[in-house]
Design a protein around this nucleic acid. Sequence first.
RNA 1: GGUCGAUUAGCUCAGUUGGCUAGAGCGUUUCUUUGACGUAGAAAAGGUCAGAGGUUCGAGUCCUCUAUCGACCACCA
Length: 890
Amino acid sequence: MRFTKSYDPGEFEPRIYAEWERMGAFQPRKLQREADERDETETQDCYALVMPPPNANGNLHIGHGLTIAIEDSLARYYRLRGRSTWYVPGADHAGFETWVVYERALEKQGHSRFEYSRDELYARVWKFVEEQRGNMELQVRALGASCAWEDLTFTLDENVVSRVYKTFEKMWNDGMIYRGEKLVNYCPKHQTAFADIEVDYQEEKTPLYYIKYGPFTLATTRPETKFGDTAVAVNPKDERYAEWVGKKITVEGVNGPFEVEVIADEMVDMEFGTGVVKITPAHDFNDWEVGQRHNLRVVQVIDEEGKMTEVAGRFAGMPVREARKAIVKEMEKMGLIVKIDKDYVTKVPHCYKCGAVIEPMLKEQWFIDVERLAKEATLRLEKGEIKFWPANKRKVLIDYLKNLKDWNISRQIPWGIAIPMFHQTETENAPEWIFDTRTNLAKIEVGGVKYYRDEDTFDTWFSSSHWPIVCTNWEEQRENPYYPLNVMETAGDILFAWVARMIMMGVYVTGEVPFKEVYLHGLVLDEHGKKMSKSKGNVINPMELVTKYGSDAFRLGILRGRSAGMNQAFSENSVIAGRNLCNKVWNIARLVQKIVDESEGGGVEAVNIAKAEEKAEIVNENAVRTGGEMPYSTNNMGEDWICRELVKCKEELEDDFKEYRFAEGVERIYNVIWDKYADWFIESQKVYKNVPLLKVTLEMVLEMLHPFAPFLTEAVWQSLSWTEGLLIMQKWPGRLKFDAISAENFERLKLVIEEIRRVQQGLNEVEKGQKWGLLYGDDSLVADNEVLVLALSRVASIASTEGQPRGLRLAIPNQEVYLDVPEEVVKGYRDKLDERILAVGRELDALNMRMMNPNYVDKAPTHLVKQTQDGIREKTEMIERLRGELRAIE
RNA sequence: GGUCGAUUAGCUCAGUUGGCUAGAGCGUUUCUUUGACGUAGAAAAGGUCAGAGGUUCGAGUCCUCUAUCGACCACCA
């Protein structure tokens, strides 16, 4: 026996993945396409997508699990559709993330980053990452990602760095790069600058101090920055202070009095505090801008370690928070504090990694003037060159790009791509900068002049924004069918950080948008809809679920109930449902294989089966070939019906993939397999066997499920006796041929059987475990399908009434079927009948109400009106019949 | 403060252009050793679709307001 009693994923998954890799199934190829109607309309035969690179030395988290489930389903679907599919895997050097981990490790060993040179640190981290690497890639494999490993791109690969340098050079030549002293978000712990999007604002209670400030009282949360005040501002419309504008005032300070000018600026909110603001251009973004507008002096009060500078006099060297306390104490002594609002809540910027308070800091950094980038990207977006799921993100992105500020690309951490700029130290004031890619050298010589390397590295998003370009090896003036990518799939929360930048960079570098479609997924929340976090202890490790239930179960589970851009809860239950489906399919295959074996082995029924096959292959003119190989014919209406249902499922799945409706697709295939294929078709095949059709339909089921559950379907494929090759390399199924009228008749028979079951179950509550015989009167549908009805409805026997009906007549329109039940049993059933009469009566009332409305009859489409009329007739008949049953009881 | 999203069964979610007698999975109840599967089969219970208005023959679906929750952006010194 090939098939064990239940499916054990652990037994197949590693072997199957290795087999796929060995056979080169993941590499893009021109698959031989057979001419069939479906494919002729297909003009594009490449399908490319890239994996958002997971941290090279980290572990996958649940979000990666979702990403891979989605992307790989797409890749496998389009591969089956015959596209040359290229799913490019990646690994991220994760500049800051990795750096934080490494720095922590250094600290544990009692060392500090400042003991080493930049090059030494870089070499050490490289070694560290190399040692840690590999886990992530194994996990991506465990999830079944059918990606082209030979083309794996690491974010520090040679081609990435050279591409990034080329772009930087182009920008430098285009005058888009400038070095500026600007306020940047600065983490004193990590001593590096951040992009705006990397700052984590948290609401905190911060005392609001009302302090005496010359002739004014003003409110501030940061009295310690007073040493850096170079003006005091009021709103130009504020009459209270109009007389002071333009005048110099003397302010009492803890280090003695000082003078500042009173300026008028729109930025001041008259309603807030007292309507007076002290201006500290060096440590506040708003103040900085005010300072720019009014040409104010900039005085640095806080240094790079987050300590007070010498400007603070006796407070110099104190950490900011301590200094604040000390200064407030001193001011209280001097009577400068008017009042303190202790409950004031404001949003304080924090380092998203270590939680330290971010200080706006004046730094010399490299900036990109984003005007041109943003403008061109916006234009493309407005033209609709990229389609988004969810659709509203396009507008969100446009709004973001329209307000984009210049991009600070300098980071003061050694782990990353070095900025290819060198300066001449001899010139003190305005050093001359030159572009050079020899960043492996700290010092270079050009034309006999020595230049020194900028010690900073690029913001990771600067290189990441090249991802579609570098992964597809795009090069100027070379045809590249894989660029632009067909789709960019990633997390919705990096829409700005990554997607926006990829678009800007793609357009700037290649002149084309980097992808045609964007699918964004939301956050995976815990089962109660809460964000997963280490501190809450509600983090779900995808690998644990894979080990416990199998990779396919995880994939099916995580796709269930998920739609584009939505944050959604996730629980083990949905993975269990996935596991159950896998087992179900396994057992379907197990039974089908058994029947096939019997037919080939010459068992009891082999003769009949062989006849059926013969009929399919030779005799029956309706025999058709499908799935490529197998001829089959449909011999009864159940067979026509399953063909119809499978074809419908196939076509709807195609739409689901086109519209990125993964959850619907999973649910669709789940229902077809379970509620239709197994519960009706396979059950009816226990009565009438059609081996060629069993084979064909099972193959079709496997092909349709394969994108979502690759391992199971491949395991089944390879365990079946008649299949050849690998499922991953098969073709997406074509249309099955079937007789539509016959299929519809089965639908009717199904209703009859369901009603028989329902009534039998109801009677069961009266008389436990008892089975009854079934009688049919003038009813050809039942008469012609005696054996099937007997088997599927599980009645004790089936026979004609011979013109003498008895027992309980079932309430099925247009059918005459009785359950041969003694009167005393039927009596116990009368409550149920009463209930049903009432229920149908309510439905009838609703329909009658509708018809009584002349506007409805007038304005609603005729087919709906007809539907309503039919409904009324049916329900009226049914009520009559049910009443008849009731009378029979009495 | 601005923008967007959510609110449907006990729980987690579907519900595409209005036609719904509102679905699924899990959970719950009852029954069942039936040519695979108890990780199963059969049946059932469970919902005034957040609330209030409006448009329409017809609203879970469209519009307005309200409430609650959430995300993002900006930010108040």
